[in-house]
């Protein structure tokens, strides 16, 4: 468990946050065109205006549901496929070109193709899945591969049951890799998911609201939605990593 942050540490964090808010305020004053660069105060005002509306919560819930679904599907599929590929070399070799393709094709290409093939309703689910899946797959392969060969040999000699080997040797080896991959994937799933929504503009989504902010040149509202995504992404990341930590014990 991480030690609690000291008051001094918290105070320093607060000062750093204030410094960057000051930089933001100064930049907005320098540009002096709220339509191009909203100030922190304008952004907060826009957020306060949005918060009590039904559309805000429908959009937040819609995006959260789609991106979280895509992430968890990728987590499950990535772990299962990674474990199968670890066990069967042929599968690993078979999947290698597909995974290389998934890693290297630009997200925008995926977004447009999925939009053409499946429409916009589940676009963020599929994009989030496509972005997260390779990270989890490779983390699973590396994690399982890092299990101590001497202990695996010991388990073989003693005829330790497979379930016990998986739980006591492979699981502890896998967890740090999975946790690291999830920490990166969680942020990426939000970035890619919202980007997909901006292009596909599905109903009741943060992406749709951002697109409308752009159409109406409402920069303060665009910033408010961006702030909302940052907060949602941070909450989601903390919650998933906390759950993984619990499961890994």
């Amino acid at each position: 468990m991480k030690p609690a942050k000291s008051p001094r540490h918290l105070f320093r964090g607060l000062l750093i946050a204030l410094f960057w808010l000051g930089v933001w305020q100064a930049a907005s004053m320098l540009v002096a065109k709220p339509v191009l660069f909203a100030s922190p105060l304008d952004t907060v005002k826009a957020l306060v205006r949005l918060l009590p509306t039904k559309d805000f919560w429908l959009s937040v819930l819609g995006s959260f549901r789609r991106i979280a679904l895509g992430f968890f599907l990728a987590l499950i599929l990535g772990m299962l496929t990674g474990a199968a590929a670890f066990r069967f070399r042929l599968l690993r070799e078979l999947l290698s070109p597909l995974l290389t393709l998934m890693k290297s094709v630009p997200v925008a290409s995926f977004i447009i193709l999925i939009l053409v093939w499946f429409g916009s309703a589940n676009l963020a689910v599929i994009v989030s899945l496509i972005i997260v899946f390779p990270l989890i797959y490779f983390a699973t392969l590396s994690g399982l591969g890092s299990a101590d060969p001497e202990l695996l040999e010991l388990a073989k000699v003693y005829h330790v049951p497979g379930k016990r080997v998986i739980w006591q040797l492979y699981r502890p080896a896998l967890w740090p890799y999975l946790r690291g991959a999830c920490a990166s994937a969680l942020g990426m799933s939000w970035k890619a998911g919202v980007a997909a929504e901006v292009i596909g503009t599905p109903a009741h989504s943060i992406g749709e609201q951002m697109y409308l902010s752009k159409i109406y040149m409402d920069t303060a509202e665009l910033f408010a939605w961006t702030l909302t995504v940052i907060v949602l992404s941070a909450i989601f990341e903390r919650a998933v990593l906390w759950l993984l930590g619990k499961a890994g014990k």
Binding site: E150, L151, E153, L154, V157, Y158
Partner: peptide, 8 residues
């Protein structure tokens, strides 16, 4: 059952 060179 075995004791290996290292404790494992």
């Amino acid at each position: 059952s075995a004791v290996f060179q290292t404790d494992r």
